[in-house]
């Protein structure tokens, strides 16, 4: 199992993500700098971490989405390699048009930083197969721009296709239809604002994030 974490200037959850991946796979991920144009050969799983890539200049995730490594990530995603974007990683995936919609400033304008209940909406995806359908899990959020937006037709489509992975049980940021996590049409790209890598150890206050990594990395299989 070969994993990679993409590191942008301003990423700040890259090490947490690396700890999560190593805990589950037993092997440290490759840390891939945004200026690289290639991923390690045979990479099985790619994570885009949280943070404030390029200082959120222009729009959150906008610059990172145009960095050289994103072309390689996009190619890998098209080949079916699982790609997980958390928080800023989710913003990057929408800006790169690997996921639909956009993440706007939180409706309440506050930076929201707390553990929130999430409803598992789709428990069939490769990322969420470790959860029960409709199960409520607790995962921390920490963001200013997590207000998910897409036009009504797009929202209807992704809901109809079962591509809403998670919803907020209590909408913390104004997201359309309480959406907290979205899958691409092939189901191998997941973007989510909550941080599963911050809920993998009892010392974190909960371990609900662990099952996402275990499912995605095939440990449960």
């Amino acid at each position: 199992m070969k994993t990679a974490v993409i590191v942008f200037p301003g990423s700040n959850c890259d090490r947490d993500m690396a700890v999560a991946l190593e805990q589950v796979t037993g092997k440290a991920p490759a840390m891939v700098w945004h200026r690289e144009s290639q991923l390690p050969d045979g990479v099985d799983f790619i994570a885009l971490p949280g943070g404030f890539s390029y200082g959120d200049y222009l729009r959150s995730g906008a610059m990172a989405a145009r960095s050289p490594i994103l072309r390689a990530v996009s190619d890998a995603a098209a080949r079916g390699v699982p790609v997980l974007g958390v928080c800023n990683g989710f913003q990057v995936l929408t800006e790169a048009q690997l996921l639909p919609g956009a993440l706007m400033r939180n409706a309440g304008l506050n930076f929201v930083c707390r553990t929130v209940p999430l409803k598992v909406e789709n428990s069939q995806s490769l990322f969420t197969a470790g959860y029960g359908a409709g199960e409520e899990i607790a995962i921390p959020v920490a963001h200013h721009d997590g207000n998910y937006f897409a036009d009504a037709a797009t929202l209807d489509r992704i809901e109809g296709e079962g591509r809403v992975a998670f919803r907020y049980a209590d909408n913390v940021n104004g997201s359309a239809r309480d959406i907290a996590g979205v899958l691409n049409d092939a189901g191998n790209v997941l973007g989510m604002m909550p941080h599963p890598e911050r809920a993998i150890d009892r010392a974190h206050g909960g371990t609900d994030g662990l099952r996402l990594f275990e499912a995605a990395l095939g440990v449960l299989a």
């Binding site: 222009l58 729009r59 906008a62 145009r66 929408t94 800006e95 639909p100 919609g101 956009a102 706007m104 937006f149 897409a150 036009d151």
Partner: peptide
């Protein structure tokens, strides 16, 4: 279209 604006929003 490619960078300055996000045409989704």
């Amino acid at each position: 279209a490619k960078l300055l604006a996000n045409t989704v929003i």
